[in-house]
Write a protein that binds this DNA or RNA. Structure first.
Lengths: 197, 197
DNA sequence: TGCCACTACCTATAGACATAGGTAGTTTGT
DNA sequence: ACAAACTACCTATGTCTATAGGTAGTGGCA
């Protein structure tokens, strides 16, 4: 159900075509809520059917058309209601920690590879989060810039700081994950003997 | 697919009935991979069908019976293979961070309630993780104790330390989440004005 | 004897999600 | 003139997951 509100969140910055949504999504909202376009297109249709969005068909080239979605008043209301309602708590479901708990079953080499892969994934993810955070701080993030246009300048700081706050949380998590993986690599060396190569 | 291996992990400690699995699960493996019993029973059946488990029917009372599942050799092999194969990377999907990024849409009271609820959930979760960690350190954790029986005493430290390592990772994440929520509450007070009550 | 909590196991249903495709038009560069 | 890359949108399939039930036997106790 969160996908619907993630899409609403994105579309409050400006009306967009489905294609724009699926592209922009991966560069902003997807950092907190990932979804592939095969989930996005049908959801946009359902949201229009439910009156949260309305679409206008825009010509594109000679024969082509595209559909631009805008949030309706009912959409804004639904988004606000969701914002004011308690969050669902997500249950822990992380294969990396599951595996870590049973590392005595793994080959030492595989255990190391595992932890390195995990660390590298989060390191990459962290770099992306920090880069995005920087574009929020200097307000060059395109979606943010479009969003701020609807607001009085006195509100800008407030809006931006909430977004930075969200990214700070994600960055903390990424850092914690990386540090944990590093400790794991040290532990594997200690328990299995350092690799000989 | 991880559920299958989470169940295998649990059942390597000792054979268990489906009911035991679903009870024990929530006190150990569920900390890293949650699943309700409505998912567990069918999965156990499928695992037996696939030759990873074998079951023996045990009488229970006068008329009742229960099914005890034990991991087969094929099950052990599958578990080892999974342990040695690269992990799937989970995509970010956390409603709390999604909401945090759009907190300018929320009522100040709702924003505070949100963050408090998030903090309280993780505080509770942290207490549980720390309590469980302590039972691993002193080896009083029942599933761990049963597991260690299959191993030579020289291996005990190795096994226990991997489990502690996994919990340490979860504890780090919980602490980071709590600290983030606290910072969020301060931020809301700063941006929306402290609550008047 | 009846009731209740618990053990034991299972089903149904709907929605979420991943993965892997497909079609058709447009723009850009050579 | 043509290919390649991109825009635009959609479908199919299978699995996963949440939620909410259901049935039947057991053990204790009042």
């Amino acid at each position: 159900m969160s996908l619907r509100f993630a899409l609403l969140a994105l579309l409050t910055s400006r009306p967009m075509t489905g294609y724009d949504v699926s592209k922009q999504f991966s560069q902003s909202v997807a950092h907190v809520w990932h979804a592939p376009d095969s989930q996005i297109y049908p959801e946009l249709n359902r949201m229009e059917r439910d009156g949260l969005l309305e679409s206008t068909v825009v010509p594109w080239g000679k024969k082509g058309t595209k559909k631009e979605y805008a949030v309706t008043e009912a959409g804004v209301k639904a988004f606000r209601e969701w914002m004011d309602s308690p969050i669902e708590i997500r249950r822990q479901r992380e294969p990396a920690y599951l595996k870590a708990a049973y590392l005595e079953w793994a080959e030492p080499g595989a255990a190391r590879a595992e932890l390195e892969q995990f660390r590298d994934h989060w390191t990459e993810h962290l770099a992306m989060l920090e880069a995005t955070r920087a574009t929020l701080v200097d307000r060059s993030h395109p979606t943010l810039a479009r969003r701020l246009e609807h607001y009085d300048a006195s509100q800008w700081d407030r809006i931006v700081r909430y977004k930075i706050f969200a990214y700070d949380g994600l960055i903390d998590q990424a850092r914690a994950a990386i540090a944990w993986a590093e400790r794991g690599l040290v532990l594997v060396d200690e328990l299995e003997g350092a690799p000989v190569d």
